[in-house]
Design a protein around this nucleic acid. Sequence first.
DNA 1: GAGCACTGC
Length: 755
Amino acid sequence: MANPYTRAPPLGSGSSKALGDKDPFYGWLPRRINAEQVQKAMAGDVNPFTKQPHSAQYKKILETRKKLPVFAQMSEFLRMFSDNQIIVMVGETGSGKTTQIPQFVCYSDLPHTKGKLIACTQPRRVAAMSVAKRVADEMDMPLGKQVGYSIRFEDMTEPGTTFLKYMTDGMLLREAMNDPDLTRYSTIILDEAHERTLATDILMGLLKALARRRADLKIIVMSATLDALKFQKYFSVSKGGEPAPLFKVPGRTHPVEVFYTQDPEPDYVEAAIRTVLMIHRAEEPGDILLFLTGEEEIEDACKKIKLEADDLLNQDPDSVGPLVCIPLYSSLPPQQQQRIFDPAPTPRMPDGPPGRKIVISTNIAETSLTIDGIVYVVDPGFSKQRVYNPRIRVDSLLVSPISKASAQQRAGRAGRTRPGKCFRLYTERDFMKELEEQTHPEILRSNLANTVLELVKLGIKDLVKFDYVDAPAPETLMRALELLNYLAALDDDGNLTPLGAIMADFPLDPQMAKMLIVSPEFNCSNEILTIVAMLSVPNVWLRPPNQRKEADAAKAMLTVPDGDHLTLMNVYNNYQQNSHDRGWAWNNYLSQRALQQADNVRSQLQRNMERFEIDLVTTADPKRLHMNVRQALVCGFFMQVGHKEGEKGQYFTVKDNQVVNLHPSCGLDNQPEWVIFNEFVLTTKPYIRTVTDVRPEWLLEYAPNYFDLSSFPDGTETKRALQRIANKRSRKNAPPESSSNGKGDRPSKRAKKAY
DNA sequence: GAGCACTGC
């Protein structure tokens, strides 16, 4: 056979007639391609990848592509790509990097000639989908053929045809778990690396090691300017040697003038409202984007601004135009989110002062959503950030100052369509001296139980020595290892157990994966599957401010008094029985969107169960079914137990002895002595949320290692209570329920032993 | 008697 590189094989719909002997790739040598070759191929009449004639549309799009800053540097890029295994690339907003660089790579790498793919990862699903669509158009191909995307629940690729795949970072990480060498890929592009999502961080560590094993793999890390040097050093080719080369492309945005306050503002919401109204009165036409921290703050500010703006309009209708306030946060239904794209209101009278639109948004407008036409940004300098405290194992959301990088990103939102202004509600000194350079990457702010299990499954032996871009706190790793060991996912030496290997394959927190896998032993895997799905989606309960009573009453109708987990199950079952009816969900103050998602997650998990031959079983007798479900819950959540002390209903977490309260949303009709909880949240008080009544015997029985009383701090009421139960049990000298194994409905003997 | 920054598998 001739050199395979002299002639690209015809692809998919390619017809040899159209091709003739004019294959635009004829004689091309992969990874040794220059810009002249590519330009010529792009300008040709025949699409070199499909061998079809180019459409008129294609030529049009090509002209606009040529105006992108990155296009002018194609030659430089191709040279750098030829000469290096790893490149760090910086491309500011509007450079065209996300759409163009992967295409340049296609022309140079010619992945289709070797049956490989180019991957380009994105932190968000919508981005992966929309960019893939755009690039498919640019390359004159139907989406899902040569160019596709892959996100959870949706694989828009065609095996054997697709050679450029946009995907979420989490998706590529999943693939790595089953193929640590990522052999299908010839080039991997990590886009938006500066966002430092957990998945991107882990991928960077994996790819750095993989680059040594696979000399044929090329890697491109794309980021914002501030982080480039850090990545260059991290990906230095030789140990302590040269940093990875940098490819830099200017952006194409308009200048944004930044203003600071003279003095610190004591009340940033009040200051923000004042600033917005000042802009409305005094500045040229143009829409405003105000960043606040959460739903309540946003809705509140919306009302206040509206009131004040209406006053202004009435007082001075000749110089002040109408103003419309639009809230934006993730839990808003998509339809309402769309309002941010509405045009500004029209003047009240012909020739009157023009109207203005103000969007008041959480961080969602910083990265996930771009709104065109914004000219003014008001930035109070705060956002809610997730923090994880490994000492007490609690996740919380804290309003914290943003980073410099974040502030710059926010300011940039004012310059997308024309020159803009950004009003920072803090002093220049604070910006320079007080703000951190970067937002702490997620890996430093999260519970890593899931990540650690993934890393072990990926074959990483020593988690502490893993080459992280930023290493997590050792205590966070310890907490994760400890949890996984108690769940029997890792043995005492930190090796993956067969159970752990299966757990890692479920897109779930380890606790939930564990209880799902063991649930057939309790004859309730059907129910646990539902509960796990419901726990994996956003809150299903709606509570509109003016209909709280009605919403609470509707919830009470669906509540199961034995526990919130059972209530969730009941909600899902009712949703099914009412054939996913939108009206039913609406009448019961439930989020149809969340229920639909739960349904989706449930099917995906069910497919995973089938792959591992985990039976889907249930128990006929409803009373016994509830008992069985509650026991299965213990198998996953035995480390999240609350014990009531005293009559006041004060709960203490087991072992950590933290004081916690039942969350007001809890549906229990009494205060059981022992409960398991799904989450521990720190808001106005420490709360445990999604709570179920359990029996202490179950704790001792299904989690004997964790409930080894010698490991408990002495002198606590919890320990004494458990000791009493243990004594009673040993007197009986037989497990109380498994001995009477008359009906198949009861937990089997094996369940007792294994867990 | 309270909340839900945002993403992802």
